[in-house]
Design a protein around this nucleic acid. Structure first.
Lengths: 199, 199, 199, 199
DNA sequence: TTCTAAACGAGACGGTACGTCGAGTCTTAGG
DNA sequence: CCTAAGACTCGACGTACCGTCTCGTTTAGAA
């Protein structure tokens, strides 16, 4: 009655791990999500398929790790705070938009997105490890804005974040329009000012 | 030296077409996007695979048509206009959120979404045939609100729409939080009022 | 209770019939038996598939008819009789061997052969309509030889024919050796003289 | 830039190989050549299709191997030599005829035959691996007969073999007549004695 | 000569099998 | 015992033809 023995992480080959992650990012950037295969990644990484299956439970979790590697390396610990909320938000969102111009980043993020959309467990992992920490950073900046009187006290921060970042993410995913700096600025300005007429 | 002759639409079997679209929707609701296969759809529809390949160029475009069938049947010609913009928006967005509770609708929309994210051509088709008409309806309502003095004159309507609908779509796709009526109301209220403090 | 109505031969299109048989022969000569398809024949003949299915019950019987058309046109009514049996047999067999050099003839005959090998009913038809009449001609010549004292009285003519024509047919089918005039001559000479030493 | 890497025979599964060969023989015996499919063989053998395509280049070569397995197991190393050539030949040919009564053997041999007739490369392989060795055995027996004065010295052995075995093979393939022991005896007697009258 | 029923071309249909690709599992050799 | 390599079973891919079934459109015989 032999049960699947869990692999011993202490014996894991760091070389192989890095090669796999790098190959995944490279490949997804080259051929796109649809044509991405475990077999292809293993081959490109010079690695046996089993080595991938041993350490990742699904293509999604591999893609997720790969994306973390790609995104996490130059990650800011906090959002800029120059005292001008609008300017800071535009800065951050413009940088996001610029990143999505890099096909590697664009494709990797699309791939991860697809996996998340279809896998609730992976989505939970994503929320926990990537979305929540990022939101915390954003909230921090918004709270500072509240303290500085630039943001209404009674605004629900979660909603504020969704309203600032959601439109950009959607326009990128669905290609409903061009992702320009101008659009980013409009979103920030409109969100801050609100849709209602001001007296 | 002609390759692949285009099929004659006048000889198309309406029975088969309907069976395929229905089977696609049913199947994606049952097994989800990941396990969805052309073979499975053909079998469930009692149809030869070739009949699918003859009329649809990709799984994406089939899913797109299937979704149109599902969504288009009860389609409103215009957004409600009771004179109260906030109430009308909440009504529409709550209905959207409720629709996404139906696993069939939820799964079909996820499937279509995945295809669109990875296929720019399909995305263009989506924008043209589904997104743009819907936006036009929304813009119409917003213009009425402008005339009624409930919406600022200088607001860019595209941005307004993205700010109202984007957050809901994102929360649903990425499961970053529960899709409740309360959340919908918060989004509408916050978007209208704006993030800045009011004097 | 409508039963498949038999087609009326008097209304049959002779043009179509000829085009089909010609296309079958041409195609089998071009692409070989393996790649031969009813669809391809119909297309090459400029004919609907149904017209083939209406008049022939199987690919085999079509091929059989096609072969008859090809072979029957220059068919001799009787074997030559110069008084010299060996010479006459060699003449006939050399002509047979030469015919098999024409790829059209070779391929058509292979195709028909394959169908016959796997379809006893077709084989019976072949024996009745092609093999038996040909054998009768051959027997006639052999009987003449018996009368002329060139063939033993007690030889079973069926066996004699098999022994003269069988080796050539086999060598052609299985390519166990080159089909030369020299080989033909050896077969005739050996068959006539017998394998046993003569006193 | 290497295409299609050749598989490593040392890692080949003997179990799978045997199952495939056995399934091929069984299936061809059950359903006949026409209905025989790679898919069917794979299924019956409990094997993936790829495993067949990995090791055999065509249905023909698989059928050839299968036939070798079937035929090769009870293979005589040499033809009997009792000193009486006619009797020995009749013995061997009667045994051949009897084998063809077994539907498995009959169908398998028809299948292989069809493939050989339409594939020159396979035919060459057949000649090399099956026909030539068998002929060598037969020649050996005929040479012994020549030494014993039962066969003319100047007879071309290839021709002699074709004249003895060809008629039987043809009658079996084309079903031009019943394959009886009596017929076999007639062929042997007639071939030995020759068609010409004896003084 | 017109009428009309059939055969005709075209090709869509439900199917079966093709030969290929990749998923995920299992085995072998090597470090 | 992890690893690279790769053979294994399995399921789906997209294509080619099968034989059946409409569709209009000729076309030939009876009215």
């Amino acid at each position: 009655m032999s049960t699947k023995v869990a692999p011993d992480p202490s014996r894991r080959s760091e070389t192989a791990r890095r090669a796999i992650l790098a190959a995944a990012i490279d490949l997804v950037g080259e051929v796109g999500y649809t044509k991405l295969s475990i077999e292809g990644i293993a081959h490109a990484a010079g690695v046996g398929k089993q080595t991938i299956y041993r350490w990742w439970s699904s293509k999604g979790s591999l893609l997720f790790d790969a994306f973390l590697t790609l995104a996490g390396e130059g990650e800011a610990a906090a959002l800029p705070d120059t005292g001008d909320l609008a300017a800071d938000l535009k800065l951050v969102l413009r940088a996001t938009v610029d990143e999505l111009d890099d096909p590697r980043y664009d494709q990797a993020m699309r791939a991860m997105h697809v996996e998340i959309v279809n896998d609730p467990i992976l989505a939970a992992d994503y929320v926990l490890r990537l979305d929540r920490p990022m939101r915390e950073l954003k909230k921090e900046r918004l709270r500072a804005a509240q303290r500085a009187g630039q943001l209404a006290e009674d605004v629900e921060l979660e909603v504020a974040i969704d309203m600032l970042f959601g439109p950009i993410l959607n326009r990128w995913l669905q290609r409903t329009g061009p992702l320009t700096h101008e659009y980013v600025d409009q979103v920030v300005d409109t969100a801050l000012r609100g849709l209602q007429p001001r007296p």
